[in-house]
Design a protein around this nucleic acid. Structure first.
Ligand SMILES: NC(=O)c1ccc[n+]([C@@H]2O[C@H](COP(=O)([O-])OP(=O)(O)OC[C@H]3O[C@@H](n4cnc5c(N)ncnc54)[C@H](O)[C@@H]3O)[C@@H](O)[C@H]2O)c1
Ligand SMILES: NC(=O)c1ccc[n+]([C@@H]2O[C@H](COP(=O)([O-])OP(=O)(O)OC[C@H]3O[C@@H](n4cnc5c(N)ncnc54)[C@H](O)[C@@H]3O)[C@@H](O)[C@H]2O)c1
Lengths: 229, 229
DNA sequence: CTCGTTTTGTTCTCGCGTTCACAAACTCCT
DNA sequence: AGGAGTTTGTGAACGCGAGAACAAAACGAG
């Protein structure tokens, strides 16, 4: 995130004449939510929906939804609404999940096992091509049909499969090292579950998922409620 | 989040005369990061640090850090910096993690097991008092010293332990039901790992952690990089 | 005690994101 | 065909957060 925000600022007007609108970051973060809501609607047999319907399903304001979608283009019909399948495809294309992205997971402990077993990966545009761990005792275990391999195989696997996205589920102390190795191999997007601040070169995106932070934010508000009551 | 953002707007000026500053949401989200950075510094033996030092450890701008801390009060010394332990305590107190919060986890599958085994809970102000699952086959299994119990025990446990925070790690279809039951029992903060939009009454906070969304955001930027290259 | 140095706390400005509100565009009914 | 009813797409207003910049405060040297 750090590297991206700074570099995104420098882009400004695009040089490429076509298909290179720049979508606000806040909108990008909501597109996956819309995509999921549309999938739900499609599975329920809905062919068409209004911005009001979709906004309700996604849990956002309908004006915000319309503005978000307007960054992609004009895919709705006034007086009618949006074609569910068509809009779903357009969003998927914009996000880039019409084809599968190969992903590696490093650190196959408690969390790594859960991630490897997570079926939502496959169904939402991602494919786990390797599970890596530094501990030899973990090697050759098969998790969800993929076998755990030595961390040193990283470079080989990344180049073989053209991996651009890596997931870190190691202890916090190892996270920076793992990130450095990933970057050295050519990985340019990292999802970090370890509670540590990663520093990466410009051009590499890092997003973090931190359970404790989420809980502490809840605790803050909870304490607030208790005080005023 | 939805319920809170709307209600937070109505607060405005506090009626209580003391200790009831309202801290911006963006700042609240960063306080846990500062807390963690301070803990690292303390463990490294640092007694005092400047805003520059702490900002570097937390991965933020130093001006932003100072402004964030100023919402809590004046805990630094000009020309010197911040006392690490003192500031750490003040932030912990503001967040409300000087005492442990009891937490229940519902849905002890792949992810639920990992969460139950996560040591970061205990060390950061939270205590898992119960693991609940609807599947009888899971019952009486002991995970990290806590045994898995029927979901119907929820009310009993919540009232016995005064639980205010619940974690949902069930499949998406069950999430809304679980949330409803939690709210009915008196839980007012929910951390949701299931990929579904929860609707809860006002006054209940919901935060979601969604792996697929994070990956899809990375994919979007990744696709961008590939296009321009 | 005074001056220079360091670092905080705060003010000010700018940009982004959210929301309102409405004109444009489409459908359907008569 | 025309008018009434819907719903999109967007211009404009507004509020919040980020960051720069600086004055106030503490400290140490002389
Ligand atoms: N378990 C959870 O629910 C949970 C929740 C939130 C965050 N986290 C974080 O996720 C991370 C993993 O948690 P966990 O509970 O799975 O821990 P774990 O100890 O069970 O697993 C860590 C794994 O990483 C491997 N590893 C260590 N160093 C490595 C290296 N340099 N290269 C490759 N592999 C390495 C270990 O061999 C181990 O298998 C931790 O940082 C933790 O704080 C975990
Ligand atoms: N596994 C992952 O890494 C991962 C990552 C991100 C999100 N998620 C999400 O987290 C959730 C759990 O994932 P998982 O892989 O652990 O699934 P899982 O199927 O392994 O576990 C789900 C558990 O919930 C229990 N359950 C079902 N209905 C229930 C109910 N009404 N009340 C109480 N318990 C109930 C089931 O018995 C099961 O034990 C899913 O929504 C998944 O999409 C999982």
């Amino acid at each position: 995130m750090t590297a991206r925000t700074t570099s995104a600022k420098t882009l400004g007007a695009r040089t490429l004449g076509e298909g290179a609108r720049d979508i606000p970051e806040a909108t990008v973060a909501r597109l996956p939510v819309y995509l999921r809501a549309l999938t739900s609607l499609a599975e329920a047999g809905t062919r068409t929906c209004s911005s009001e319907d979709l906004a309700a399903a996604a849990g956002v304001n309908s004006a915000k939804l319309r503005k978000d979608l307007s960054y992609l283009g004009s895919y709705g019909t006034r007086g009618v609404g949006y074609d569910v399948d068509y809009l779903r495809y357009q969003i998927a294309r914009e996000i880039g999940v019409t084809q599968d992205w190969p992903v590696v997971i490093v650190g196959i402990g408690n969390l790594g096992h859960a991630l490897a077993n997570y079926s939502g990966f496959r169904s939402r545009g991602f494919r786990v091509v390797a599970l890596l761990d530094a501990d030899p005792e973990r090697h050759d275990e098969v998790v969800a049909g993929v076998d755990v391999r030595p961390f040193d195989d990283l470079e080989q696997i990344v180049t073989d499969h053209g991996v651009a996205i890596g997931v870190i589920a190691t202890p916090a102390l190892a996270a920076q090292d793992v990130a450095d190795r990933m970057v050295a191999c050519g990985i340019t997007s990292i999802l970090n579950f370890a509670p540590s601040v990663l520093s990466v070169p410009e051009g590499v995106d890092v997003r973090k998922v931190d359970l404790s932070i989420e809980l502490q934010i809840l605790a803050y508000h909870e304490q607030r409620k208790a005080q005023t009551a």
